[in-house]
C-alpha cells in the first residue's frame, strides 16, 4: 500500500503504460490522475501557469467519467498544444464534473515532450473506494 502522499504509480504493461491512482476523495483521485497522465507526456515542473480553462463533462458511470476526463485533457493538449499543470475539480458527482485546469501552451524550446498518448483505454479500468480511500487504474495506449 502506498503512503498517504503517493498520488500515482506506474504499472508494468508490455506494450503500453498504465498508472494506479490514489486519492483520499474521488475529487483528489481525479486531480491526481490528470497529473499522472501529464507526467507521462511531459516534465510538469517546466510548465508555468499562464492560462486557466474550464471543463464540464458528463458520462454514463464513474469509470467512464474518469476516462472522459483524461481523454478531454489529452485532446486539449493534442489539438491546441495546451499543457495543463494544475488540475482543480470544482464539482463532482458519480457521472458529472466540472473542473478548472491551468497551464500554458507548449513551447518546444522550453518544454520536453516525452511521448504522445494516443488514447485512454477501458482495458483493466477500475475506480473504487477501499477502506476509506479511493483507488483507480487506467491503461494508456501509446
Amino acid at each position: 500500500m502506498p503512503d498517504d502522499k503517493t498520488k500515482f504509480s506506474h504499472i508494468e504493461h508490455t506494450a503500453d503504460v498504465g498508472i494506479k491512482i490514489f486519492g483520499a476523495t474521488r475529487t483528489a483521485l481525479f486531480e491526481n490522475a490528470a497529473e499522472g497522465l501529464f507526467d507521462i507526456i511531459t516534465n510538469l515542473k517546466q510548465v508555468r501557469i499562464r492560462e486557466t480553462r474550464r471543463i464540464a463533462l458528463v458520462a454514463g458511470d464513474g469509470e467512464e467519467l474518469l476516462v472522459r476526463w483524461l481523454s478531454e485533457l489529452n485532446y486539449i493538449f493534442l489539438t491546441e498544444m495546451f499543457l495543463p499543470r494544475r488540475f482543480h475539480v470544482l464539482t463532482m458527482s458519480e457521472t458529472e464534473m466540472t473542473a478548472e485546469i491551468s497551464g500554458e501552451h507548449l513551447n518546444p524550446a522550453q518544454h520536453v515532450v516525452h511521448t504522445e498518448v494516443k488514447a485512454v483505454t477501458y482495458h483493466g479500468l477500475y475506480l473504487r473506494r477501499e477502506s476509506g480511500a479511493w483507488q483507480a487504474q487506467v491503461i494508456f495506449d501509446l
Binding site: 504493461h13 508490455t14 506494450a15
Partner: peptide, 9 residues
C-alpha cells in the same frame, strides 16, 4: 502475440 488492451496484439 502480446498483451494489448481488450484484444491481444
Amino acid at each position: 502475440i502480446h498483451w494489448g488492451y481488450g484484444f491481444p496484439i
